[in-house]
């Protein structure tokens, strides 16, 4: 379970005054649940995700508690947190093939042997009927293929939670529904909590939360 408590994000202005960007009193996401954060751009949705991920935010000051399955994450590095991510663009490293990306994702945490890792990745690609893309570079993939393989790689890293930032906005409408449904199925199957940011209601799933006039995040 992912818990965020008493979070406040302030943006630093030039005369080093802090202005409140976003506040979140309490959010819990159950394993297998997807929570969608909605709101117009510029309200700090992505900043929230970056904070959860553990990125260093030089232009902001933050306070708040972050727990994952009872672990306190606030002092942990990105690598230690075990949170996967899927962004609008660039989920795959452009200088590696699909195979290399998949194996690269598994290497740090997987207890499987190398050949088992290959098998696992191939099996997952097989389910998508994308096996022939194994040796291709990301720029040779179509949009839908790219998104799916990107999520696949993120899941191969065995995350304990997943963050999604506008994951489907680069896809055209027809493909979008298909990829979206597939993605949520995968997340449910992985039984990990997921937090998704989007500005498009059609992409939303499960519980929806929003940023109100007081810059507080509340249930929609």
């Amino acid at each position: 379970m992912l818990n965020i408590r008493n979070l406040a994000i302030f943006s630093q202005t030039e005369n080093s005054q802090n202005t409140l960007l976003l506040r979140l009193n309490n959010l819990s996401i159950q394993p297998g649940e997807v929570v969608t954060l909605m709101g117009p751009s510029g309200v700090g949705k992505s900043t929230l995700l970056r904070w959860v991920l553990g990125e260093f935010l030089p232009d902001f000051t933050t306070q708040g508690e972050l727990m994952l399955d009872g672990r306190d994450l606030s002092e942990q590095s990105i690598a230690q947190r075990q949170i996967g991510m899927m962004f609008q663009k660039g989920g795959l490293f452009p200088h590696m093939t699909v195979a290399e990306n998949c194996l690269f994702a598994q290497k740090p945490r997987s207890i499987l042997k190398r050949n088992e890792q290959v098998e696992k990745a191939r099996a997952m690609l097989n389910d998508l009927a994308l096996n022939e893309k194994w040796d291709d570079y990301p720029h040779n993939l179509s949009g839908g293929q790219y998104s799916r393989i990107a999520l696949l790689c993120a899941l191969l890293a065995e995350p304990k939670a997943m963050l999604l930032d506008e994951p489907f906005s680069a896809l055209d409408a027809g493909l979008r529904a298909e990829v979206r449904d597939w993605t949520f199925k995968q997340l449910a199957a992985a039984t990990i909590p997921a937090l998704m940011v989007t500005h498009d209601r059609v992409d939303a799933s499960g519980r929806i939360i929003m940023v109100n006039e007081n810059k507080e995040i509340v249930d929609a």
């Binding site: 690598a79 947190r81 075990q82």
Partner: peptide, 16 residues
């Protein structure tokens, strides 16, 4: 160079 790649790698468990 986009920090996102470094962060992505770190999120996979690699050190900086």
């Amino acid at each position: 160079f986009d920090d996102k790649w470094l962060i992505k790698a770190q999120s996979l468990g690699y050190s900086a």
